[in-house]
Design a protein around this nucleic acid. Structure first.
Lengths: 350, 350
DNA sequence: GCCTATAAATGGAACGTTCCAATAAATCAA
DNA sequence: TTGATTTATTGGAACGTTCCATTTATAGGC
């Protein structure tokens, strides 16, 4: 039924023959009201088709239970996995997080953050869009709303970040490639306006230097962090006089693109050109050939970020420790057989 | 700057030496205020670090500009694409949609819907979770909040739905398989508590009947709508005495699973067993072998759904026409060469 | 019986906006 | 000058909650 105008606690009160205060108490599950009264009120709530007005409540309480998750690219399954990890934690805490997508666009991000703030969120978990300006979170910090960065962070910011050990992951992957006998390596994808980029590229370079790959034998191609970007990177690199024989990719999307481009050229990932991805999304394992990738425990990091956020809200602070998650290399087929023992043909797949 | 307590329009008013009403007018971009006054007020807004309290505003206006998108499985790129299509439209309209994931869980969905309603959304676009009870939207309808279903709909519901022509899509795909010479067909994945399932299965069956495939030669295996589900379906089907030689899958995720399971058995999708997917997600084209799939123009349907929603909100109605989107079959490699001309070897791919 | 302690329910003042009706200031017609 | 008209600005009452301070009812102790 429900009349046209929305029902309020006053309507409930009238219906149940009690005061609005009593209804409010029932709504909050207070133990102060007599059970029979509570039952009566709850029946009235049902009868009038009441829906709680959180906006009005927050006006008094100034303590919303809404948490915003701002994601830079929802179509990248990596971020979807991250979001799902966080949701698990929030769900257990009885909180419904609202997800918003920025599509890697700082302007859009600005709008999204503004909207979330206006909505009165209790906290924000953000994977900042590429090209986010350093001041983008100043107002939010000033407002005292806790923020944590997930997966990505900003150059100089006091906002806590939850991210994998990108440097080490890249180092491990590069080391693996060099161990396989590759001497001309490439780093594909990403752009230097991302802190993660420098972390990962840094690990790549450090491994090269430590293990004796001179700068002349290193190809670095920036590019979109997408399949398309990966395809472009490979084309660029293969056009060189002495092209690389292996590549560490900024992320799995780029790696898939590289593998695709290889196939287009009649080359086989693994046998003809080694490719390693980063993030280890679910598909990596099922790709053909299966993609070697740096596993970062995406969902685990999402859970961690959510926990940190919960703790910050609870302790009313805007500060927290960074968390650097452990990484490991999931070795599969895409980085191919050992080059030192070449000519042997098939077999061997890590 | 910004003091501990949140700034309100009264603080701005004091700072700018005007009344709160004037500030409110400026905030709403009313043309009634003198430009110099507006400038002064805007400066004050900046100075005090004000953030608009939409909850308080909605209390008066009863007209929020928040739209909720409730998605049953964000990790399925298909739904992520849908969400992105909608976002494009809403962004142009200056609206920030909030996305919430139900993880295919009706209980979770209930919570999510409740939370969104309490937040005072202006409208809801929902892809209902599997197993949603018919009454799940009764309260929302009673509250007069416009709802549209995207991709999925409920058995008996007056809520408008935006979905592809599932029946026809399945018919086309099945027809194609039969045309290729297959005589024992399977339908893999999905479950009968989904309306879409019946639509797609219906198309499959109609094609079989029309084109002379007797019921005895049809295998129908329900299963999870995921890669895992697809793998299970194939195993079940191949265990039969006279196993099928081709399958139409409920969606692409299932199809990928089937292809994976084929590979595990040393069989090749296309050559040894034909598989066709549904939805045509971005990866389908890039898979190995490339997946034949029913293309539904996901992003387009998302945009359509968003437009319908906008129109409903604008015209204050809760009714709208269903929209059935056109479909087409994207023929690729996974359905293999023509069986009638078998033994010829390679060649032919759509 | 009265007084006190406890339990249960209540009225009213906030919270931060919007919007109507009203005021004040400026302009114009006579 | 006076009154009418337009242009800018303003006070105050709402919106639907929460929560404090009270009130009212119930029980217990003597």
């Amino acid at each position: 039924m429900a009349s046209r105008a929305k029902a309020t606690i006053l309507d409930i009160a009238r219906e149940a023959g009690v005061s609005k205060s009593t209804v409010s108490l029932v709504l909050q599950g207070s133990g102060l009201i007599r059970p029979e009264t509570a039952v009566k009120v709850r029946k009235a709530i049902e009868d009038v088709g009441y829906v709680y007005n959180r906006g009005a409540a927050n006006l008094r309480k100034a303590h919303s239970n809404v948490i915003g998750m701002v994601i830079n690219d929802l179509t990248n399954p990596f971020f979807a996995e991250l979001a799902v990890g966080m949701e698990r934690v929030f769900q257990a805490a009885g909180i419904v997080p609202f997800i918003a997508n920025t599509a890697e666009n700082p302007v859009r991000q600005e709008e999204v953050l503004k909207s979330l703030m206006e909505q009165g969120v209790a906290g924000l978990i953000v994977s900042p869009a590429r090209g986010t300006t350093p001041g983008a979170f100043r107002r939010i910090e000033a407002a005292g709303v806790p923020v944590v960065f997930a997966m990505r962070r900003l150059p100089e910011s006091r906002i806590p970040a939850i991210a994998p050990d990108n440097h080490r992951g890249a180092y491990l992957a590069t080391q693996h490639l060099i161990g396989k006998g590759h001497r001309r390596l490439a780093f594909f994808g990403g752009s230097s306006d991302l802190v993660v980029y420098h972390d990962r590229l840094g690990g790549f370079i450090e491994a090269c230097e430590t293990l004796g790959i001179p700068a002349a034998n290193r190809t670095i191609v920036e590019g979109e962090t997408s399949r398309r970007g990966g395809m472009a990177c490979l084309e660029t690199a293969l056009a060189a006089a002495e092209p690389p024989t292996a590549a560490l990719c900024f992320n799995d999307a780029v790696a898939f693109g590289v593998m695709l481009a290889l196939r287009k050229r009649g080359l086989e990932a693994g046998a003809d050109f080694a490719v390693v991805g980063f993030d280890d999304v679910a598909e990596a394992e099922h790709y053909m050939p299966a993609l070697t990738s740096v596993a970062v425990d995406t969902a685990g990091l999402g859970e961690r970020a959510a926990h940190v956020m919960l703790k910050m809200i609870q302790s009313r602070t805007t500060r927290a420790e960074d968390h650097i998650g452990a990484v490991s290399l999931a070795v599969r087929e895409s980085c191919g057989p050992d080059r030192n023992a070449r000519g042997a043909g098939m077999g061997d797949a890590a």
